[in-house]
């Protein structure tokens, strides 16, 4: 008799986060410990990235030969590596790099993904098929493999890392945007705008895009965390940021040869990667609960 015991639930539940302004949404985000912690972590790292060059006690490649291979101490909170570089300073300075590469890369892929998603979803038909099937074929290749392939052809540089992030994440973001567009484009307010002769760009930007933004914000945060990981992975594999730059992934790679003598030189950048990725993920999860309560 299971079929009879399904109650029809009619009473309206106020959607959390909807119907409150930005302040209310921020409060909702901070009402859960996990999302609050994640957001604080991300903000902390962001501050470190911005203020890193002032806070760092030593330069990026400043070598203090006398202090080489020192364990963490008051003078060198994270110790020094085998070349006598201050790990704390390098982790601080590396934050800047990772935010710049992963952040800007994510931003670029959000822009291109939104563009293609809007166009594919709104136009439908052959345009949609063409764009989305091409993206599907990109998605069929594992992200890291695709990245290695691209970097192998264009050679490692900052610009090529941006290109890699954009190529890898545009299809995913375009998919998310397209799915929202499909739901919105047949709604009354979009069709009314069409019957009133609104030009296409203004329909896409002013009528449809605002409805896409919540999903886009959540997806962007998620992509950012993956991008951090991708940049770090590329650095570790030696095809990303090149030595002697302070890149977390690169630092992990360099330190792993001396892990028995200077384990701290490996632990601290690795921990930084893990903490930031976890932080961004928790924040993305919180954003999702606030901005897309219906998905939960």
């Amino acid at each position: 008799m299971s079929s009879l015991t399904t109650p029809s639930q009619e009473t309206a539940r106020p959607a959390p986060g909807r119907g409150r302004g930005f302040g209310g949404q921020l409060r909702a985000l901070f009402s859960r410990p996990a999302s609050a912690g994640g957001t604080i972590l991300v903000v902390l790292f962001l501050l470190l990235a911005i203020l890193g060059s002032w806070l760092a006690p030593y330069g990026e490649n400043e070598q203090i030969f006398a202090d080489a291979r020192q364990p963490p101490s008051l003078e060198h909170p994270f110790g020094t590596d085998r070349l006598g570089r201050d790990v704390f300073s390098r982790v601080l300075l590396g934050a800047q790099d990772i935010f710049l590469l992963a952040g800007l890369g994510t931003l670029l892929s959000v822009i291109s993904g939104t563009f293609f998603g809007l166009v594919a979803g709104y136009a439908g038909g052959w345009t949609d098929e063409l764009i989305m099937r091409f993206f599907d074929s990109l998605l069929a290749i594992p992200a890291l493999l695709l990245a290695l392939l691209l970097l192998g052809t264009v050679g490692p540089s900052r610009n090529s890392i941006f290109i890699v992030i954009v190529v890898v994440y545009t299809p995913i973001i375009a998919r998310v945007v397209r799915s929202v567009v499909l739901g919105v484009k047949s709604q009354g307010f979009v069709e009314a705008a069409r019957t009133q002769g609104e030009p296409l760009p203004s329909i896409l930007l002013f009528e449809i895009l605002p409805s896409v933004l919540p999903a886009l914000a959540v997806e962007a945060a998620l992509r950012f965390s993956y991008a951090i990981f991708l940049v770090a992975s590329l650095g570790f594999l030696g095809v990303g940021v090149q030595p002697p730059n302070a890149d977390w992934g690169l630092m992990v790679n360099e330190a792993r040869h001396n892990v028995s003598q200077t384990p701290w030189a490996l632990y601290f950048p690795a921990a930084a990667i893990a903490l930031l990725v976890i932080g961004v993920n928790l924040m993305a999860d919180g954003l999702k609960r606030v901005l897309q309560p219906e998905v939960e």
Partner: peptide, 17 residues
Amino acid sequence: LSRLQIVFQNPEEALNP
């Protein structure tokens, strides 16, 4: 276009939120 206008069924979807 302006001489012909439409009002839809669902008021929840009628206005840009």
